[in-house]
Simulated assay, not measured.
Amino acid sequence: MQRWIVLTVLTSALTGLTALTGAAVPAVADDPVPATTTVTLGDAKIDPRLPGRIRVQVEYLCTVAAEARSLTVSAEQKDPEDTSSVAFGSSRTEETDVICDGTPQTRQIVVQSKTTNWLPDVDAVLTATVSNLGATPPAAADAKRIKLAAATTD
């Protein structure tokens, strides 16, 4: 009988503790709304000195990241006159170069083709991804088809 009473008292106490841990914390009106991770591709221009490289404008926004983050841009372009010729490349920035502080950032990313030179005025498919594992959502991407512009000499 004593065991049953002790067990009932312990169960009641534990139930009360678990109810407290699940209690909601009231929101404070001054709490900032966390920004979501976003990325937007801008224009892409062929490097005038190295036609195997393109410079891609990327705008992104991500919250303060306590975990891993990265910015990756990839490009692919088929030669309309030679279907077997495809230029493609990808570039990933170092984690320390991705600024996640809740403010909009603009970067110019250089993508080197692994196969052939990029062709001006020909469609290319660009993809940009920002991963921010400490945020919600943990990643964002943008993709678009654009004609690569030939850049003038800087």
Results as ranks from 00 to 15, higher is better:
71 L>A: 00
74 S>G: 09
86 V>Q: 07
84 S>Y: 12
89 G>V: 02
91 S>E: 13
71 L>Y: 02
81 E>Y: 04
93 T>W: 12
74 S>N: 13
86 V>L: 15
101 D>K: 00
70 S>P: 03
97 D>C: 01
78 K>C: 06
90 S>V: 12
79 D>G: 04
104 P>S: 12
103 T>I: 06
73 V>A: 04
79 D>K: 07
71 L>K: 06
83 T>G: 01
76 E>A: 13
95 E>F: 01
92 R>F: 03
81 E>S: 06
84 S>N: 12
84 S>W: 11
75 A>I: 08
82 D>I: 09
86 V>F: 06
69 R>Y: 02
95 E>N: 14
103 T>K: 15
95 E>M: 13
91 S>G: 00
69 R>D: 00
99 I>H: 05
72 T>L: 08
104 P>G: 07
101 D>Q: 01
68 A>W: 04
78 K>W: 07
91 S>P: 03
100 C>F: 05
86 V>S: 04
72 T>M: 09
79 D>S: 04
96 T>G: 07
77 Q>L: 08
88 F>R: 10
89 G>I: 08
96 T>H: 13
102 G>V: 10
84 S>F: 12
97 D>M: 12
89 G>E: 08
74 S>C: 03
91 S>W: 00
96 T>M: 07
70 S>E: 01
86 V>P: 00
75 A>M: 03
74 S>K: 11
92 R>W: 00
80 P>H: 08
96 T>I: 11
93 T>S: 11
81 E>G: 12
86 V>I: 15
85 S>D: 10
104 P>W: 11
96 T>D: 14
97 D>T: 08
87 A>S: 15
99 I>L: 14
85 S>G: 02
77 Q>N: 08
77 Q>T: 04
96 T>A: 14
93 T>Y: 06
78 K>P: 00
97 D>K: 15
90 S>Q: 15
93 T>E: 13
101 D>W: 03
93 T>V: 08
100 C>M: 09
97 D>I: 05
90 S>G: 07
88 F>D: 10
74 S>L: 10
75 A>G: 05
96 T>C: 03
99 I>C: 01
91 S>F: 06
68 A>G: 05
88 F>I: 05
72 T>Q: 10
77 Q>H: 09
70 S>M: 06
69 R>I: 03
81 E>V: 01
93 T>K: 12
77 Q>P: 00
71 L>V: 05
72 T>K: 05
101 D>E: 11
76 E>N: 11
83 T>A: 13
103 T>N: 14
99 I>N: 03
93 T>A: 11
104 P>L: 14
70 S>T: 10
78 K>D: 09
90 S>C: 01
75 A>Q: 07
103 T>G: 08
75 A>D: 02
84 S>P: 00
76 E>G: 10
69 R>F: 02
68 A>I: 00
100 C>V: 06
75 A>R: 01
81 E>F: 06
86 V>Y: 02
76 E>W: 02
73 V>E: 05
76 E>S: 15
68 A>E: 09
74 S>V: 01
